[in-house]
Design a protein around this nucleic acid. Structure first.
Lengths: 302, 302
DNA sequence: GTCGTGGATGTAGCGTCGCTTCATGGACGT
DNA sequence: ACGTCCATGAAGCGACGCTACATCCACGAC
């Protein structure tokens, strides 16, 4: 029962295939395949079964992968047990965030962590669909993700995902300064029919919020553009090419845009930190996470 | 954080040294030493410190060894997770027992387990002092041990020892058929002053029971011989060389001996099964243990 | 139908890592 | 002071797991 092989099995499940697993493990598909073979030989039962040109875990494979999660946690706990004797935690933590979250949180996080000394934070910005956030936890330690407030939870492919709430951000209606609604203190769903919308791509986190807002006024939104990057969307709004739903703390920095609060409908997004349970045991990771939570709390309050 | 190195660290703690650990792990002391060195390098802190010509774990080493126990458990759980898909458990289980316990339990255990099919039980008889029973759990899967009833618990050197009670056996006074007490239905402590005793060696499980019995009559026992093997002791009793305290179910088989119950003092021994927690996760081990418990229950009742 | 692609799996070969063997150096007891 | 016990270092060897390459199968395109 090699621990590395157990980790490989988990990766095959979460990534959905040998090649993808090999990717996150920095191995060749052949190595992954060989590890699965030897593991299955040891176990005495088939752990995987072919389906089409890919494969999936058998029930035995799933059971073993579940147990493998606990093994990984136990090992990281062991490492952490040493680290407490090592003074303040030291090391490198990989953080991934979607663009607007990165813009909102990463600068502050880096300065906060820099004050502690000895911890290196490596940032990546990732733009993925709602269902793909969890898979990122195989690549980095902390994933900053967002989802519609009140919407679906995170899809966790048997990973025991740790979800740490960071903040809730209202979604305001962004209009150009020349727009008829620009002077309003607030707007209702009914005020928003017959507008050109700048929305995000289908399947991406706040896509469904717009549909919900429109549904409140009994209409379907007219989508002129699909732009995932909020700052690009904001530029389009400023230029008068449509209106958009933008997060309050992140958007509204450019002069040509007004953010008008939306009343009568609950529109917002939740920003969460996602971690794989074994990674969550690492002391450096916990430290960085604590800073992230504290920072988000400050933003959330004021 | 190699799992084998973690297991080695645990063995060094429980066995109290590099050489002894190497023994139970079937390695050379050099290999153990090298594993500790690399583990300490990874951990970044010293895990061991020299004391005299041996060594002991530092506090960091102890913390890591504790965590290593959980790692071992998690891994065995993973193995067990596969075994449930494998039909009835198969494999080999090593059992160790002290002589009289072995005589009482092992024959029945072997026939019971043989009925299940596919499980090989390897038996060993071990005669060790009270404090050394726990250390045997590094060598075999199940240790059948005994201790004075009401006496000290098992000394567990940070091993998280699993203790499974098997049975309680009263200690009777064994006398030769020609002895004045042979006709009695029971005896009291006061009847036993000024007798030649056949006791067990100092530090061995039921040694203190005799002292307790004597104390009840306000005297100190006169020990003529120190014999650890109860059947040898019984032969001496039969030949009239003294009297002894012998377990009721185990002794009294030879014609020249009478077992007379002792009243007014609570004299007995408890027989327990001792397991290392990781070993206790193995499905075969659990199966054999269940049979052992059932068998002991039968003996205890009738 | 054929062809091309994507993905999993075998085989050969090589590097690396951990073991054993042997030698060294302290610490304790006689 | 010597011998013994125990942990540790250096050299060498074997084994294991990886990469690279080839093969095979399933699916989709034309």
């Amino acid at each position: 029962m090699d621990v590395r092989a157990l980790a490989t099995l988990r990766a095959v499940r979460t990534q959905g295939g040998v090649t993808a697993a090999a990717e996150v493990l920095h191995l060749t598909p052949s190595a992954v395949s060989q590890q699965l073979a030897t593991l299955g030989r040891e176990a005495g039962v088939a752990l995987t079964e072919r389906v089409g040109r890919g494969l999936r875990l058998t029930s035995a494979g799933n059971a073993l992968a579940d147990a493998a999660g606990d093994v990984a946690v136990a090992i990281e706990r062991a490492r952490a047990a040493c680290d407490v004797f090592l003074g303040s935690p030291v090391g490198v933590v990989d953080v991934s965030a979607f663009q607007s979250g990165a813009q909102l949180l990463l600068p502050g996080l880096l300065t906060r962590v820099a004050r502690l000394g000895g911890i290196t934070v490596r940032c990546t910005d990732e733009d993925v669909a709602q269902d793909d956030f969890a898979a990122l936890t195989d690549r980095v330690d902390i994933v900053v993700a967002h989802r519609p407030d009140g919407g679906a939870e995170w899809t966790d492919a048997g990973r025991g995902l740790r979800v740490v709430p960071l903040l809730r951000e209202p979604l305001d209606v962004a209009v150009g300064v020349g727009h008829p609604l620009a002077g309003r203190d607030d707007v209702r769903a009914a005020d928003l029919v017959d507008q050109d919308w700048i929305a995000v791509r289908e399947g991406f986190p706040v896509a469904r919020v717009l549909a919900a807002v429109a549904a409140a006024s009994g209409s379907t939104p007219r989508v002129a553009h699909r732009i995932n990057d909020f700052s690009v969307a904001e530029a389009l709004v400023a230029a008068g090419h449509g209106i958009s739903l933008l997060p309050r703390h992140t958007a509204g920095r450019s002069a040509g845009v007004r953010l008008v609060p939306l009343t009568g409908v609950r529109a917002g997004r939740r920003v969460d930190a996602l971690l794989r349970p074994d990674r969550a045991e690492r002391l450096v990771v916990r430290t960085v996470l604590d800073e992230l939570v504290a920072l988000a709390g400050e933003i959330d309050r004021g």
